[in-house]
Write a protein that binds this DNA or RNA. Structure first.
Length: 201
DNA sequence: TCTATGATCCCCT
DNA sequence: GGGGATCATAGAT
């Protein structure tokens, strides 16, 4: 199990990184309790030219400031007033690229995840959809800005790989108001995986 | 199985 | 004042 290094996140092509994150293991380590899941769905947000991004046209607020920081840190924000969404910041400082982790397949600490989400048993809803991922892994806005090379939140490669055939791409979810940018195939997911959000894989 | 709706907060107009 | 990178639930089909 090898933590992804800074070089992985610093690359310029956010689409490529988003695709490569599929199959990697996202782990959180809060209060000595580890929970982790294999990433099965991501979405890329391509900086100031991406109308669906918070940083579109160079928008800069207290909320999205973290996107402009250097690569390899967490960007967490609250959506619809109640859901915490976890993103990975990529590219150089001042280039606000980010990748939203939309779904993982639970690995370690399922008991803890069930406790955090108030669910009774493991089913696809535990870590399907970005709000559920953050909740199950215990990630919240107070973790925004955390370094992913540290020990609290990190992404690692355990040698597992999806074959190219298993990986699909399509339009992002929930960004219909982004005009023609809503149609860009910036969403990547594992074909047929039950934890992938949306009606059909 | 599908669609409508409420919860509830930050940011832009 | 309105809308969103959402989710769970209720009620209709």
């Amino acid at each position: 199990m090898e933590k992804l290094n800074l070089g992985f996140y610093e690359r310029k092509n956010v689409l490529k990184i988003a695709k490569e994150l599929l199959g990697k293991v996202l782990t959180t380590n809060f209060d000595g309790i580890k929970t982790s899941g294999r990433i099965v769905e991501t979405e890329a947000y391509n900086g100031v030219i991406d109308r669906a991004s918070h940083a579109w046209a160079g928008r800069r607020t207290a909320r999205n400031e973290v996107m402009y920081k250097s690569a390899g840190i967490a960007y967490v924000y609250i959506c619809y007033g109640m859901h915490h969404l976890f993103n990975v910041v990529t590219n150089d400082e001042e280039i606000p690229h980010a990748i939203l982790i939309r779904a993982v397949e639970p690995l370690l600490g399922v008991d803890t995840m069930l406790k955090r989400t108030g669910k009774k048993q493991l089913d696809r809803t535990l870590t399907s959809g970005p709000g559920n991922v953050a909740k199950a892994l215990g990630i919240s806005v107070k973790d925004s800005g955390l370094n992913l090379l540290g020990d609290k939140i990190y992404i690692a490669d355990d040698g597992f790989k999806y074959s190219p055939k298993q990986i699909a791409e399509g339009p992002r979810i929930g960004v219909e108001s982004a005009g023609d940018h809503a149609l860009l195939p910036y969403r990547y997911y594992v074909r047929g995986n039950q934890f992938v959000s949306g009606k059909r894989n």
